[in-house]
Simulated assay, not measured.
Amino acid sequence: MTDLSSAHGLAHRMAELARASAAPRSVANVLSDVTATARELIPGTDTAGILLVGRGGKYESLAGTSEVPHQLDELQMRFNEGPCVQAAVDDLLVRTDDFRKEDRWPSYAPACVAVGVLSGLSVKLYTAERTAGALNLFSFTPNAFDTDDETIAAILAAHAAAAILASRHGEQLESALSTRDRIGQAKGIIMERYGVDDVRAFEMLKQISQDSNTRLADVAQRVIDTRNS
């Protein structure tokens, strides 16, 4: 059970985490801070990690504070069952007080016990349309988590989700800027080569894209490649 008597101390630690999440750091570092903070703020947590599940069963096991979360993620994806997958895809929160008595996951629960994990807490991450995720906390003792721990885990999961979404937004923005630059270069080449203006050069690129059923950015890259070849 987490001692919430020091509300100021808890709020201060959350504020530190929020500032760290907002700084220009890699998403991997932010997620590692989240799982490390889970161990710090939720005493029952012996190890923690983050599972992302994409379409087609592709998954990423991230920010584990030990190898155990990665091992358990792999087992869940192999068995297609378990609390982390369930929280990532369906439920908002999944808590297991004792895997020795757990019958929801007949293959996964015994595997947890075999590696010494007896209880767990998984909280959904709101990531993106094509990817589901969960923050996963594990304990080597039974009945390690309570409702206060669920609340703190939900806040930490929100930090993790924000970091993932911010990272993807940055990647999309970088991709969009790269595409814009390529199209601009291609237009300049066409204008110089064929003596047309900016508007006509862009229309030519669009026409080739439509006729060949090829992405406009790819057509632009091909034009750039003809200049460099």
Rank of each mutant, 00 (worst) to 15 (best):
H12P: 00
G184V: 08
D181W: 05
V27E: 01
G44W: 04
A18D: 08
V219A: 03
D33S: 05
L165S: 05
D3G: 03
S175C: 02
G57A: 12
I224R: 07
L216R: 05
R78P: 00
T147D: 12
R182C: 05
L4G: 01
L216T: 06
S66E: 06
V34M: 06
L121I: 11
L173K: 08
Y194I: 12
G120N: 09
D73R: 02
Q172K: 08
D90Q: 14
D218W: 05
P142M: 13
G82T: 13
S167T: 01
T147W: 01
D90L: 13
W105P: 00
A109G: 02
L92H: 12
G9T: 07
L93S: 14
A166P: 00
F145M: 14
M77N: 10
G116I: 12
E171Y: 03
A163G: 03
L135H: 10
A128C: 02
V68M: 10
E203T: 12
V53F: 03
T214C: 13
A20M: 04
D73W: 02
F99Y: 15
V89R: 15
E81S: 11
G9H: 07
F140M: 11
A201V: 13
K58D: 05
A88W: 06
R193S: 12
A163R: 04
S61T: 04
H169Y: 07
P83I: 13
G44N: 14
V123I: 15
R25A: 10
L52H: 06
R55W: 00
A111T: 13
R180A: 12
V85R: 15
C112F: 12
D98Y: 05
N143G: 08
V89K: 14
E102T: 14
I155E: 14
T35N: 06
E203K: 12
A157M: 05
I183S: 02
P24Q: 09
R227E: 15
L121Q: 08
R193A: 11
L156P: 08
T214I: 04
L205K: 03
L75I: 12
A132N: 13
E203I: 07
E150N: 01
V223D: 14
R39A: 10
N80M: 07
R25W: 00
Y59A: 15
Q172L: 14
I183G: 04
P142A: 13
T179A: 11
Q71M: 13
E74H: 15
P83D: 09
P43M: 06
R168C: 01
A220C: 10
D149N: 04
R55P: 02
S209P: 14
D181P: 00
D198L: 01
A114K: 15
T96G: 13
M1E: 08
V94D: 03
D33L: 10
H8A: 15
S21T: 14
H159I: 09
V123K: 11
I50M: 07
G116W: 11
N143Q: 15
A114T: 12
S21K: 00
E40P: 06
D149S: 04
E192T: 15
A186Q: 11
T131L: 11
D3H: 04
A217Q: 08
